[in-house]
Amino acid sequence: MIANRKDLLGLEDLSADEISGILDTARSMREVLDRPIPKVPSLRGLTAANLFFEPSTRTRLSFELAEKRLSADTVNFQTSGSSVSKGETLRDTACNIQAMGIHLVVVRHQASGAPHYLARVLDAGVINAGDGTHEHPTQGLLDIFTMREHKGRIQGLRVAILGDILHSRVARSNIWGLVKLGASVTIAGPTTMMPADVERFGVEVAPNVDAAIEGADVVNILRIQLERQRAGLYPSLREYSRVHGVTRERLRRAKPDVLVMHPGPMNRGVEIAQDVADGEHSVILEQVTNGVAVRMAVLYLLAAQKGAGDPPTDSGAATGGSTGAATETHTVEATKRHDEPTLSPRR
């Protein structure tokens, strides 16, 4: 469990037990989401700020939804990278957040390590919602959660991660989490997009997509960015698609019950063929649903350990106190397990 952490910055930092703990909590949250009224009061009185220094639609919506399902107050800050002028702004933003008494900060930033900076200077808990080309831990968690939901385990799974590994924070978080939980990870992609010394992650580097897919339980396909072509990292989308695109034909090399995953948004017909994206193996939309559950779990666990929230239980009736004094009026039941059937909405 991430019980004594202030922040979630990356899966590199977490132990296998901590990751499993989050996944278990996410299972309970997933049950909440499947209810007629999918809302619990766990984070009532807490304020979460979503700071998106880089454009994002689905991750921001997913976090915001997760916060609302947990009854947190939410504020959003979104700006395009170019309008933010350099480091002072991050510092000034941090000072403002600190002054506003925000409890949890969700941050997406184009600079790797920016959430680590905020985590150092803020009292609030910081959740990394994607930093540069470093990590995107909640995406990694939701991918692993989705795999576990379908396969019942992670240990021993053969997972292929395909595409632009160099620039992918999704790949890094997947790799850290999967390797820690005992999966066997194979990566493949253009040689220009293979990071230096990548085998030191504990992954196998396949010579091509076909070899990586061979016998895979899961195929996780990364988005290819158009700007990589401009940077000369691949000659054309046509070439990329021919050499690295996952087609129905190529997918035959995988296990018959293979899961096809993609963090979105997809370039249909480029890294993933149309009929693979919409095919019977695809769990891509399920990833989106699970994303909300996983983010609820992370928010809940960080809030609870901060002593700022109460567990999502019926006994949380004590939450009737004033929102301004959350830490005084809310009882923290650190020993309460989230997999107990205590997540009904306070209605």
Binding site: E12, S112, G113, D131, G132, T133, H134, E135, R169, R172, P195, A196, D197, V198, R200, F201
Partner: peptide, 13 residues
């Protein structure tokens, strides 16, 4: 520096 540390940190090498 481009190497294992740039790979791990996501900082451009």
């Amino acid at each position: 520096h481009e190497g294992w540390v740039s790979t791990r940190t996501g900082l451009k090498g």
